[in-house]
Simulated scan of single mutants.
Amino acid sequence: MSIEIFKEHLSGNKFDSLYLFYGPEEFLKKKYLDNMVDLSIEKGTEALNKIVFKGEIDTGKLIEACRTMPFFSERKMVIVKNSGFFKNKSGNYEDLISFFSVIPSHTILVFVEDEIDARLKITKAIKEKGLMVELEYQKADELAKWVMKGFKTFNKEIDYKTASLLVEYCEPGMTGIYNEIEKITAYMGEEKKVQARHIEDVVTKSIKAIIFDLLDAIFEKKSEKAMVLFRDMLNLREPVPRILVMVAWQLRMVLELKACQQKGIPLPKAAARLKIAPFVLKKLTRQIENYDIDTLKKAMEDCHKLDLGIKTGQIDPQTGMEMLILKYAAS
């Protein structure tokens, strides 16, 4: 895998001349860029030998920056952030593509993008001439282990179960999770052992986490709890149409997993086929047994009807969502 090859480059301090980092995990992009700068550029010369381009970029100026010799350092880095080169189907980057074959040995050129189109000529050129490193959100078990290490740097201890709870509360991005680690550490004071109560006291659940709780309450016929959770999301200024979309997505996942289960397909295999993360599967598994397929299909149909009613102005969003919740959460 490309990430493993890149880690070998880091550990050996032997870098290629061309890289493309892409994907949603901003924390890892920053971490690996910082690692490369620390290893590649002579200390104290970063201001001279780290050149960063953002936004609209003149390819001629970019090429010239790469050709310029480093100052008081054997190597320099040229970092290009969110250029749009790798999504622009009409872009003409022939000069840059040709340059990929003749990048000077003293230059490390790194493109950093959120999304790319693998079909584009420029993307294929980097795949051929350099190294593409995909930085996706990490799996829940990996995040939990990383959380344990994170607390250790603050001289705090946390077990795997409690670390997993923090991961469940948060969005998947590592930057946000690390911010919560810092907040919890400050809140704990002199205490050494992180407990579930610390997380519950400090961390605001992500909307996705609340959606799981909402569906749990509906499936368990706890209408009062379900209504409280829905209104909590409204208090967080979450638009009803977005809440409805997330509820419909979760219902669809439960429905598809239940259908696979009835066909004799093991749930982990079904989840992999549906690209459902392991920690999400763990939550959905609790919900699979509560409704039969016909009821789930009817709930999905009601979600679509409500969505249409909201869009056409025939149904008040909040009232419609409350009626939907009560219909399926009623004892």
Rank of each mutant, 00 (worst) to 15 (best):
G264F: 10
V245S: 11
G130V: 06
F230M: 15
G91F: 08
Y160I: 10
I218N: 10
I51A: 00
F111W: 01
L39A: 11
F100W: 09
K43G: 05
A163D: 01
G313F: 09
E128I: 08
K31A: 00
S83W: 07
I211M: 13
I184Y: 09
L274K: 07
K269Y: 10
L306F: 11
Y22P: 07
C66W: 05
A299D: 05
C170R: 04
W146D: 00
D216I: 08
S331R: 12
F72I: 04
S105H: 13
R273M: 13
E56K: 12
P268L: 01
R242M: 15
Q261T: 01
G84M: 06
R237A: 07
I122R: 03
A259M: 12
D307Y: 14
E94Q: 14
Y32R: 05
D302I: 08
F279S: 11
N49F: 03
R75N: 11
Y169M: 04
L326C: 13
G320T: 05
G130K: 05
K156I: 02
L251P: 00
G176F: 06
Y22G: 04
F230T: 03
M233D: 04
M227Y: 10
L236Q: 15
K81L: 10
G313W: 10
K327E: 07
R273C: 02
E157G: 05
V102W: 07
I315Y: 13
G189I: 14
L166I: 03
G313E: 08
L33I: 10
E115V: 11
K7D: 11
K263C: 08
E171T: 11
N49E: 04
T59I: 15
A248T: 14
V78E: 04
A209E: 01
L251Q: 03
E94P: 03
I3L: 15
C170K: 05
T59A: 00
V280G: 04
K305V: 14
I97F: 09
Y32L: 03
Y187D: 01
R273L: 13
D16V: 01
E94A: 13
K152M: 00
G320E: 06
K31D: 01
V247M: 14
K263V: 00
F85Y: 10
F111R: 04
A144Y: 12
H304L: 15
L165A: 03
V202L: 10
N290H: 15
A65R: 04
E142A: 07
L324A: 07
I243R: 06
I325Y: 12
D95G: 12
K87L: 15
I5P: 00
N82R: 13
Y22W: 14
V102G: 01
F6Y: 14
V202P: 09
A299E: 09
E4F: 14
C303T: 14
L166W: 03
A329M: 02
E301P: 08
L326D: 06
P268A: 02
